[in-house]
Every structure is written in structure tokens, then in C-alpha cells.
Design a protein around this nucleic acid. Structure first.
Lengths: 240, 240
DNA sequence: CGCGTTTTTGAAGCCCCTCAAGTGTAGTGG
DNA sequence: CCACTACACTTGAGGGGCTTCAAAAACGCG
């Protein structure tokens, strides 16, 4: 199954052939977007629903002082702003991190799917709730975990999410995030992220080089992070 | 209008008499819950939808080391877990802070409302999206604001939310949160929250005593916080 | 009035930031 | 093929913001 969106949704719900076909068709014309390109900006009127088919993106907000806070990473299969049309303006921006293939679904089409396909509606709700629990997990990390735990926790989250969509192999996966990007997500400076990564590397826990994360000791990593993947609400649990 | 839930929803949508009557009836039998009482605990199967009719509550998560992180405050009119039934287990707990009147709506009833009353459905979506943007605003605060800005920002948020449901009068409102509770929400210690509050008091910005917040200089407060209430997505803007 | 909770204040220390410089590494053009 | 540039990564020194530990004062409630 080459469609990451389908792969992700079918992780939660068993989709009928008709549901599958409808979804397939809805995001059949993805557009290639270059890296570091805004899909939508804070203040804009909500646009269509974006579905990331390939590549990485993030939600972020710029502060007056020029600093940036990333509030979510978007990976293949993730979709944004399912119902944002209800609001009059976006409160944050969404940008690609790498070059990406992005499908768009207009709101009329989405509304139609929601009204007529109860299984899809439930699956969409599930993604929404997982995203929400992920936001809460980030708040917990920022509020009550130190930098080492915080980095470890994010690495665990991204690893599990990558694994769920079949992007890992044998404790490693491609994670094209610079230390500056990680810092913007973790509420740290890139210099400090660098020091934390060194510590994890020297401790034989994990190594992040050239855009790939290699987890040497997943048990140590999970234990440092205090990671519990419940918040990602997976039905199936596969081995690492 | 004595029903805080109705008051809040009608802020976004103009509800028909029938919608109003249905909502009124759905939460017509609130229960009084004592202070510091869990409504639902992490790990529990999702229960009914809770609607806070009176009093304060919060979502929180306990960490292994015994620390606590609050991820949201719930005020009159706020409802939780609209669609949580989709999930198999709660990822966080919800507890009252003060004594509270809490209505419950079972999921079958809610589903019926959503299927038959499009105006209500849109209004529910709006509350959901506001909650989500609030989570993101908290992440931004924790990641990129220092303690003074963070406290100021939270006070702004709570003041605007209280004002929206008619709980303020002339720059003041009842905010029954201890410094320890604020600390658990802000990712600080109660000692440091105390020092920040003193600074704001001595600066003639605001004063928090005996469970009421008195804002002396709203402009200063907003400017310290870098507060912008867009994320609460209000349609109407009333004067303070 | 007495007791638990909350608030307040102080002193010492650590975690992470700021500022600063230097080291790769990939891409470009001569 | 090598200078040149841009960007990401790396490392160090010093400082500040928030924590930890500790204890006293104030408050609220039976």
C-alpha cells in the first residue's frame, strides 16, 4: 500500500473497499512542495485539508522576538485542519521541513465523506484525538522533563510514529531534522540539543547522524524518557 | 441565561429555540462534585461527556517521580471528551479544583445531537478547535516564554475566558487557583510562582489574593505576556 | 484556639542560555 | 580540481533563571 494516509487510517479501522477507494481518490493528486515552504500562514483563512503523503512538515508559531516554537511534526499519513474551516483565521503556520508530496482535500469533499461514511468519520476522529493527546504529551514534556528526558521522549515518539507507517528498519529511521529544528520543538537552544545528543551518543543510547537516527539501546532510551506510547492510541502493537 | 454551556456555545453560533431546548435538556441534571475529586482517571475507559456548569476543574497527568502537569483548566461552559469514546483508554485524568456542578451527557445522546443538529455540530467543532489552539498556545508559552511572561499569559487567557462567560467585573474575577496549582500548570515551582506574583504586584500590574485576581493595568499585563486572544477564536469582542 | 494548608522569604546550586569561536561538510563556480 | 560560500555541527567559558532545601509567617476552618 503506497498511500501513507490509507496505511495510517487502516491501522485504526478496517476500511471497506469502497472507503479505501474514496480515500484513494480524494488524495490522488498530490503536489510536490519544496523544503522550508509554508503551506499556510498564521492569519490566513483556513484552506483545504492537507495530507502529507511523503516527507516531513511541522506546525509552528513565530514570536515577536523572532524565536520560533514548533508545536507538532507531521509525517506521511498525517493530515491537518480537518475542520479548521469553522474558524476565521489560522493561529499558526504549517511548513514543510523536507521536500514533500502533499495532497489537498477541499472541505466540501471532506464534509461529504464525513456525512456518508461512518467508518471514515470514526477514523478521522481517532486521528484528531491522537493529535490532541500528542499536544498534551508535549506540554507534559516541556513542563516536567529536563532536556535529556525531553530529547529522549521526542525521539521515542518519532520512532514509534515512523514505525507505525513502516518507515523504520531495525532500530533506525530517516529523521531529517536539524538540531536547530529539534531545539525549536523542544524549547531549547540548538547548542544545548547538541550537548544532549552527545551525551546520548556517548552513553551508547542513540546516535543521530546525517539525517538518520540509530537507536542503539531502545530500553535505555525509553527508560530515560519515561516513555509510554499509550497516547498514540495504537490498536496493534508490533515488535520493534 | 443560567446555563454556562449554552452561554458559551451561543457565543459562536446563533442557536435555534429547538437547539437550545435540546441542549438545556441534555445537561439538565448536573451533579455536585466536591473539590479535588477525580472525574475520570488516566487508564480508565472513556466515560460520558462532562460539562462543567459551575466551578473549576483541570486535566492533568501524574509523572512517575510524583510531579504533576496540568494541561488545561476547565471553567463553566467547558466540556470534555466529546468523542473520547473512540479511544480505549484515557491518557490523562480530570479533576475538580473547587466544588463543581457537573453535567454528564452519554455518548449515544451526543451522537444523536451531532447527527441531527448541524448547527450544534458546528458549535461543538468550534469548542474542540479552540481547545486545540489553547493546547498549542500553552506549548508556545512553555517553550519560549520565561516565567514572568508565562504567568502573565496564563492570567490573560483565564481573564478573557472568564469574561466570555460573564464571570468578570471591572478587571477582576474569582480565580480559586493556589500557587501550587498554577505552578503545576506553568511547569514551575510554587516558590517561583510566588516570586513572579510578587513582582507583578509590586509592578502595579495585577494582584492575586484570596482567590480573586485583580488586574490593575491590563495593558501592561498584555504587553508583558505578548498576549493575543486570537487563539480563543471569539466572534464577538465585547469591552471589558 | 489550634492545626493544616498556603504563602512568603532566604541561601545555595544546577541546568540551560548567551556569546563566541572553530570545525566539518555539501554545493557552486572558476 | 580546488577556492569559496553557506550551513550545520561542535565545543568552551561565563552568567542568569529557576530549582532545591529550609523555615517562618499568614491564612482559613473546625
Amino acid at each position: 500500500m503506497s498511500n501513507a494516509f490509507l496505511r495510517k487510517l487502516s491501522e485504526f479501522a478496517s476500511l471497506s473497499d469502497e472507503d479505501t477507494a474514496l480515500l484513494q481518490e480524494a488524495c490522488s493528486e498530490p503536489v510536490v512542495v519544496p523544503a522550508r515552504h509554508d503551506l499556510i500562514r498564521e492569519g490566513d483563512k483556513p484552506g483545504p485539508i492537507f495530507v502529507i503523503m511523503e516527507g516531513w512538515a511541522c506546525r509552528y508559531k513565530l514570536l515577536p522576538e523572532g524565536t520560533r516554537q514548533i508545536t507538532a511534526f507531521l509525517m506521511p499519513g498525517d493530515c491537518c485542519d480537518m475542520h479548521a474551516s469553522v474558524l476565521s483565521a489560522m493561529e499558526h503556520s504549517i511548513a514543510t521541513i523536507t521536500a514533500a508530496r502533499v495532497a489537498t482535500i477541499n472541505h466540501a469533499r471532506m464534509e461529504e465523506l464525513i456525512l456518508t461514511r461512518p467508518t471514515l468519520t470514526r477514523a478521522f476522529w481517532w486521528t484528531q484525538l491522537v493529535d490532541e493527546d500528542t499536544l498534551r504529551a508535549w506540554i507534559v514534556s516541556m513542563g516536567r522533563r529536563d532536556s535529556l528526558q525531553r530529547v529522549a521522549h521526542l525521539m521515542c515518539e518519532l520512532y514509534v510514529r515512523a514505525r507505525n507507517i513502516g518507515l523504520t528498519e531495525d532500530g533506525r529511521f530517516e529523521m531529517p531534522l536539524t538540531q536547530a529544528v529539534l531545539a525549536d520543538a523542544l524549547g531549547l537552544t540548538s547548542m544545548h540539543v547538541n550537548r544532549v545528543l552527545r551525551k546520548l551518543r556517548l552513553g551508547g543510547v542513540m546516535e543521530l547522524t546525517a539525517g538518520t537516527l540509530i537507536i542503539a539501546d531502545i530500553c535505555k532510551l525509553v527508560s530515560i524518557a519515561g516513555f509510554d506510547d499509550n497516547y498514540l492510541h495504537r490498536r496493534l502493537r508490533r515488535a520493534a
